[in-house]
Design a binder for these strands. Sequence first.
DNA 1: TCGTTAACATTTTTT
DNA 2: ATGTTAACGA
Length: 721
Amino acid sequence: MTSLLDGLNPEQLAAVTLPGQSALILAGAGSGKTRVLTTRIAWLIQTGQVSPLGILAVTFTNKAAKEMLTRLTAMLPINTRGMWVGTFHGLSNRLLRTHHREAGLPQLFQILDTADQLSAVKRLLKSLNVDTEKFEPKKVQYFISGNKEAGLRPQQIEVFDPYTRRLVEFYAAYDEQCNREGVVDFPELLLRSYELLARNDVLRAHYQERFRHILVDEFQDTNRLQYRWLKQFAGAQSVLMAVGDDDQSIYAFRGAHTGNMNEFQRDYAGDNVIKLEQNYRSHGNILDAANALITQNQSRLGKNLWTAEGSGEPIRVFEAYSDQEEAGFIVEEVKALQREGTALVDMALLYRSNAQSRVLEHALFSAGVPYRVYGGLRFFERQEVKHALAYLRLLANPDDDGAFSRVVNFPTRGIGARTLEQLADAAQAGGTSLWQAARAKADASKDSAKGLPGFVALMLAMQEGTQGLPLPEVIEHMLHASGLAAHYLAEKEGADRLENLNELINAATVFANDPEAMAELDEVGGPLASFLAHAALEAGDHQAGAGTDALQLMTVHAAKGLEFHAVFLGGLEEGLFPHEQSMNEQDGIEEERRLMYVAITRARRRLYLSHAQSRMLHGQTRYGIVSRFIGELPPALLKLVNTRRNAAAPAGYDSYVAPASSVRSNTSPWRIGMNVRHAKFGVGVVVNVEGQGDDMRVQINFGGANGMKWLALEYAKLEPA
DNA sequence: TCGTTAACATTTTTT
DNA sequence: ATGTTAACGA
């Protein structure tokens, strides 16, 4: 009989079977972290140390939670229903639905995503007549969310200046608005849950008694509030296991607090720290490079990856003249690897920022290489889907002013800014929601066919018409009754949007038939509310093309947790990677270096690093020098593979150790402001110069009929005039 | 109310 | 270069 424990290395085994004590697991990249986590849960259950209901397992992404459940059901013949395995937000949602009264929330509270939250802030600032030049909505939103994530309510924030005082007032008013409307933003889900347990001794005791084993994934990414949230669930006999890798902490910019790892040691684990350092993913050279790089960071707990496999191939470095040449090189290599039998899905093009994908996409498209770009707009974030969801939200909770504002005049039904302003005033005066105010107004009005009364009639009819219908039919009814379907049908470019709306019905059908998903949320508010929560908490994979063999394009951030046979990392230039914005930030370079570490450790067998001397950025050519990170890798592991020139690498590859002088001075004879003569266009003045050497081109104003011209110096015959 | 234009900003991202 | 949003005029 095979055991769960078969095939684990000694450290993994120690982590999986650790008896009754809390521990911190430092799990390096590719060290079998997820396996340890799921095997431990399975082992605890199988050996009868805990019932499935006694487990609390928390992840960051829905994907990770799903993966954990899938692996768990493969290992154990148990029903995962009712088990608390999920994301911080998903579990908070469950807690708050169950105890909505104690938490001071309506049962059907709606969840605001980041965009909804921003429009709520805008609406608030408008109602307070705030000058949005002085207080940008984005900044106010950032302030509110930031403080919530630090666990702070308005009255707990220390104020030293009038500006902050104002922000705190907005925060308080914003909370009031949300309470009035029955909506909850992302950080509020956590803060509300935390406060609920912190204040309610009975509830806290209940959950602490229940959860004997608490496990957290990606612990290095937790923020302060998440850690405090966890601590509320941990009772005297709870055993905690936090799994993380400080070297892969790349989300400090959004509030992740690596200090949590030290605090966790102090609070729970003590010396109980297990390091998983054996890597099952990459060949030796790749790991040596990663180790050498990350050693340069000062603040780390310390860890060194090793592998039982051989060194493998050297890391290939390509130095391009331009981003275009870089892209061309990558495409050629990809095609060569494909010819040798590597599937495209097993190769990835990684970059620091999304803007870099454009050139790559262009080159791939021209070469006919299928590719798939990750990131970008997700399904539930699309405009048409948001409109549809807003109608549904309004059906579930008419007092949701955000949803009301979004659709009251969409599709347009002749309700202008004037009307809405009056409505907002009336609502504010009467202390009611927009919907209530609109109803009052409609009742007083004679003509109920159009305008605001028309909208009120529409919603009332919709409420009635959807009564008792199954979820997909509710949506279908809404799409037609609201006029959304007709609107996008009439629109020139509306076909895609219509398709997405149909896809929404599909999603609802799938959701309504998925016992797991329904079981999770159905008990707490009905299918519509469950579906809306699902839409808010799980933005939806931008699927399409799954299953086909396509090259993978994504940012380094998005690649975390993934692995590929071959990885191409482009744009290794100072200012781009490390990003220039990071240089001003506290510990910015160290986070960039961790990011580089993540990128390197994605590769199983082959790793390409490339950089370009010139690159189009924001419509201008920028000249960059090679990233310091290449210089931080042991030269012996690198191989320069430029084929077009420098067929052989320069001795010792020293130029990378001291990246000094790639910046060229502008030696061109053509300068801005200079008068020049052209054979055909006559005399003009140089207004702009771009590029280097043969690539150089100048913009000249010839005036009159010829006007502005861009001329390539390689071809245009110019002389000073 | 709607369509056009000017201004603007532009690292990374999940929930 | 490019996409998005705010302001403006028909």
